[in-house]
Design a binder for these strands. Structure first.
Lengths: 136, 136
DNA sequence: TTCGTTGTTTATAATTATTCTAAAGAAGAT
DNA sequence: ATCTTCTTTAGAATAATTATAAACAACGAA
């Protein structure tokens, strides 16, 4: 459980003004025990449900992008009509249940080390992500 | 080099009527030595350039989806505003050059075996794909 | 070959996620 | 307080994709 005050500090430290909207979004995103996978739309609806206050869709987009840029959210590479984000920004992988359209975390240990044996001159590796699609 | 006749047969065998448009699309997609990564828009423009004949955008969508369903194309899981497809439907992985927005193949041997140590009851693994993002 | 059926193409409209815009409002600094 | 800068917001704009429905083309049977 993170207090509102801690979110305010975190925002200030990131040079993001601690507005009511951003704090609400923090509560929804980061006051959780488990990692959270979501789309902008999921989040938009959850904010209303969980905080009772409405935040405009544009602000949800703005804030998610700001948090992503600051490294507080991770974008999950998956083909879907909507973009998925993850509150778990550590290096890890995913199952994607194609039927249910649901993401499940895979710990790094669940996948084991991945050795990339090829390199491209002038480029370095930024991330290595595994997506395991599941079917029935 | 695959002949037009071979494409016609392949289409018939898949219970897809061999129309002029589909044959043109086959020529652009499959008459290649190297694997081909593309977006619908790439393909739409290439058809005009390479065959001199125009195919409507709707048909490009229809055909790509039909080919994907038949397993002749693979969708590459990547977050982009456009969906990427691959003519290489074998099990393999990708580099994605974030700056240039370009995909590069990674052979299975370049990545090595990936052991998924976790399982979800009632679900089986459909595919395992690695995306390696590259930066400068 | 002709005809009826069914599948396909097409222009265009509709949908949907996302981004842009510009004005009003709130936070921070002086 | 006041001024500046950042943020929020509704709504418009954009862009990829999907749906629609009419014209057309391929197929199979007679």
């Amino acid at each position: 459980m993170t207090s509102k005050q801690e979110f305010i500090e975190k925002l200030r430290n990131s040079r993001l003004r601690p507005t009511k909207q951003r704090i609400n979004i923090c509560e929804v995103l980061f006051n959780r025990y488990k990692t959270f996978h979501f789309t902008i739309n999921d989040l938009f609806n959850l904010i209303k449900d969980k905080t009772g206050e409405k935040v405009s869709l544009a602000t949800v987009y703005n804030t998610v992008h700001a948090f992503h840029k600051k490294g507080y959210l991770k974008e999950i590479p998956i083909n879907s009509n909507q973009t998925y984000f993850d509150t778990n920004v550590t290096d890890h992988h995913h199952f994607f249940d194609v039927k249910e359209e649901k993401l499940i975390d895979l710990k790094n240990e669940d996948v084991g080390p991945i050795e990339i044996q090829k390199s491209i001159p002038g480029k370095k590796i930024k991330s290595v992500e595994v997506l395991v699609k599941l079917e029935d």
